[in-house]
Amino acid sequence: MIEVKIDGQRVAVAAGTTILAAARRLGLEIPTLCHHEALEPFGACRLCLVALDEGGRQSIVAACNYPLERSGLSVETGTPAVWQARKMSLKLLLARCPGVKVLQDLARQWRVDTADLLLTGDGEEECILCGLCVRVCREVIGKNAISFVYRGAERKVSTPFDAETDLCLGCAACAYLCPTGAIKVREEAGRLLIDRWHSDLEQALCSECGRPVVPAELLVQMREKAAEEGVPGEELLCLRCRRMRAAAAATALPVPQYGPADSFPARRSSREEPDVNQARKGK
């Protein structure tokens, strides 16, 4: 264990703990856009910048991926320099994606506007390149259906050759983690569509009501995995039918794993959600 100081408070953490994790342990709020507990730290959005003092040597670092390696380090999360740098990161992202609500909200809160910048987007662009989608697809789902392509100002997230890829199963974990709503998943005529990835997938139907529930290929792969682990295959039910049955059996409702239940009711049952830890182990 090492001991460091964050905003004047002493905290003991295991060596290698990130500043963000240590600060959160103290209940300190540090804003992030590209961070997720289940994924490797990335350090791209630069909203979590903090001031680090290493025995007199001062620098601004990203809290999310700066590992605290030794005692005696001191971190300040809210100095004027930190706020100046964070605000500029936000301002630059807002100029890129002026229509994105999470940025607009933060900008209001931080009193940031983009009036004095020359380049401001037309609102079409909603991707802030946080990479949560790329990383969840790689690190958790293990499919690598999407990646960053091109570089610099042209950098974007896309499928290989910007075309439909059979690696996308339609699990929509990318859309679920996307902080800006840039990845839109919709259902049309019984098919699941993720336009951004050119995905157009056949859905398996609820055995009770016949509603589309989950992309067929995803279901196949989940059942294979379940079989490998000795979990017996279950009848496919949509959430509503499942609840009805559950209510009928007077047992507890399945608890949604995370997030509000209204976004993708069809795939929100705990059984069907790909298990983060299982997927990682299986990689």
């Binding site: 690598n144 990646s147 960053f148 290989p160 690696l167």
Partner: peptide, 21 residues
Amino acid sequence: LERVSEQLSIPLSHLYSAATF
């Protein structure tokens, strides 16, 4: 690139990433 991906088990997305970078 598809052939390379299939033969060497390198995700096509990674090849395309390098190709465009």
